[in-house]
Every structure is written in C-alpha cells, then in structure tokens.
Design a protein around this nucleic acid. Structure first.
Lengths: 167, 167
DNA sequence: GGAATTGGGACAGTCATATTGACATATCTT
DNA sequence: AAGATATGTCAATATGACTGTCCCAATTCC
C-alpha cells in the first residue's frame, strides 16, 4: 500500500490518517452521509410522482436560474437523452420554463416557474434540515474541514464547474 | 513544509454558517465529492462486467467477513429481492462464498473468495487513491471535521450500524 | 410439543434512470 | 458556403431498484 505522505516534519499524528482504516472510515461516512441526506426529500418526491433525477435538475435550475441545457448536462454528467425525458416531464408539469438564449439563440435557458420554485423550496427545506443539523452538531471549524476534504475529492478539472455554482 | 498545503485560498465556512448559501455549498460538495469518488472504480467494474451494486456488496463483505445476508441488507438499505440477484451473480462468478451460521443455522454468512478479495482490493485501491489524496490535500484537522459533519448527517438511529463497521 | 416468528430464497411483473446510436434542425463561427 | 455547436428526438437496451406472493428451514415463544 503506497500512499502519498505529505512531509516528514509534523510529528506523529500526521501519517496515521492515511491508514487503510481511516480511508475506509471516510468512504463509509461519505456513503452513508450522502445516502442519508438525499433520502430526506424522497417522501415529498413520491407524493409528486417525481424521482431523484427530477430533483437534481430542479436543484441546479434553482441554483443557477437561466442556465443552458448544456451546462446542466455537464453538472449532472449524464447524456442529453437521459436529461431530455426529465426536462420534458418537468416542463409538461409546468415546473420549468425555457427561454431562447439572448447571446446565443441556439441555447435554451432554463428557469423554474413559480410552481417549480415552490416545489424546489420544499425539497430544499428537507436537505437543509439535515445539513443545518449536521453543521450545528459538528461546529463551524468542522464545516471548513468537511468542505476541504470534499473539494479534494473532486478532480481539479471539475472544480471550476462546481465552484461556479457559488455566486 | 510541515503540513500539506491546501489550495490557494481555501474558502472558510463563515460565522453565519447556517445561511442558505453555506448549506447549498455543503449539499453541492457532498454531491460532487461522492460522485467523484464512486466514479473511480467504474472502469474496473466495466471490465469485469459488474455494476456499482456489485461493488457495494463486495465492499461490505470485504469489510465485515462473515456478515449475514440480513446485516448486508440493512447496510445497503435495499430489498432482499434486489440484493438476491446481485449476490447470486457474485456467487456464480466465484467472488463470494456462503457458509451456514454457527450460532443460528438459518443465517448465511458471506465472505469473499480469494478471487473476490483480489477484485475488491483492486476496486478499493481506486477509492483509496481519491480519498488519500483528498485527506493529504486538506490536512488531518480537516479530516476530523469531514467525519464529524458526515456523522451528523446520519440519523442517530442509523449510526450504530455505521460505527459497527469499525473494529 | 405446537405455533408463531425469523432468515433466507425464488418467481413474476414493473418502474426509474441510465445507456448507445442515429438523425434532424437551427444557429453560430470562420 | 462550410463546418462546428446546442438542442431535440426516435428507438432499443441495461441496470438496479421496487411490489407482491409463496416457500422452506430453523429458532423462539408459550
């Protein structure tokens, strides 16, 4: 097991956190933490007859109103055929609306309707409940560490895409 | 020189770390971090003709050799019909073996064959590469925060199940 | 000892979400 | 005018989940 070891200087504690058990602990917590979070909105989605794929699309459209279909595709990392069905359904239900791009008229800019905003807000409230509770329980300094490890998991090439979600 | 150097300006969680933007940041990083991690072994799985569901089963059987089918079901949080197909395939390929429980002879205790261990080790190496790099980049104190927030996401009732994976 | 419960397995049908491949149209770039 | 890009659509397929039902063997309860 060859792992990158940061540097020789810091005493004792620093090398230990790359042991297999520590790695497995991180994998498992990431798995169960992620699963627990996304399970929150399931009841609401079921009641609407929507799935998690619809939620992901709603989430990013809410986060970046006016994003183009191609940007959403890159965020979701699925094929346009897969997204097509989801987007069509969301539009048929009046949750999402399209507008033709102003700079590039080939683009279709997506945004939520008032109805879509209401649903997304309700879904978000479920995620928020989990996340806010976890933040509060762990404390602010833990949150910084949480973010930094997760950023480290994302391939550098993908980070600009993720960071662009922040205003 | 003493500590792994984080990226230029690691965005710190602000004092108002419960604001909507901070919550959304956590949701997004958790989403992309999780997705990035589990994408690592995909090429290997494809080459074997296996899917992520097989990997999850292999992972937990490797982690807890001799666990019963019911325990695996609780970890994966799926139905036994869903697990049934996965487990059958893994056994047909000679990656997983069953033994009758010693205390309770109704139980089927699962473990990896030598072949299964070899495959799981290769799959784990992929996960490890991501996670070790993220740990090294973020630094040890970040890892503690990472764990603590993730633990906070897991409903208290489920935590014993997760913690029991640690020896 | 008999009844109820539990652990595991199996069959059948369905659904949600993803895939590949091919093709079409409008628009932008050069 | 030619080529690239953004989007949409049709068709077929795969994966991984679901519900519902039935079954057997072993354990536990009374």
């Amino acid at each position: 097991m060859t792992v990158p070891i940061p540097a020789p200087s810091p005493p004792a504690a620093s090398a230990l956190f790359l042991r297999e058990d520590e790695i497995r602990r991180g994998i498992e917590l990431l798995y169960f933490g992620y699963a627990s979070m996304i399970r929150g909105p399931d009841a609401l989605l079921d009641a609407e007859g929507l799935g998690r794929a619809h939620h992901r699309a709603l989430y990013f459209i809410a986060r970046r109103p006016g994003l183009a279909v191609g940007e959403l595709l890159r965020l979701l990392a699925i094929t346009k055929q897969s997204l097509g069905r989801v987007l069509t359904e969301l539009q048929e239900r009046g949750l999402v609306a399209q507008a033709i791009g102003t700079q590039d008229r080939r683009q279709r800019l997506l945004r939520l309707t008032a109805q879509g905003e209401a649903l997304e807000a309700a879904l978000f409230a479920q995620l928020q409940r989990s996340m806010a509770a976890a933040y509060a329980e762990a404390g602010q300094s833990a949150v910084t560490g949480f973010w930094n490890v997760l950023i480290g998991l994302i391939p550098p090439a993908d980070r600009p895409l993720v960071n662009a979600l922040q205003k």
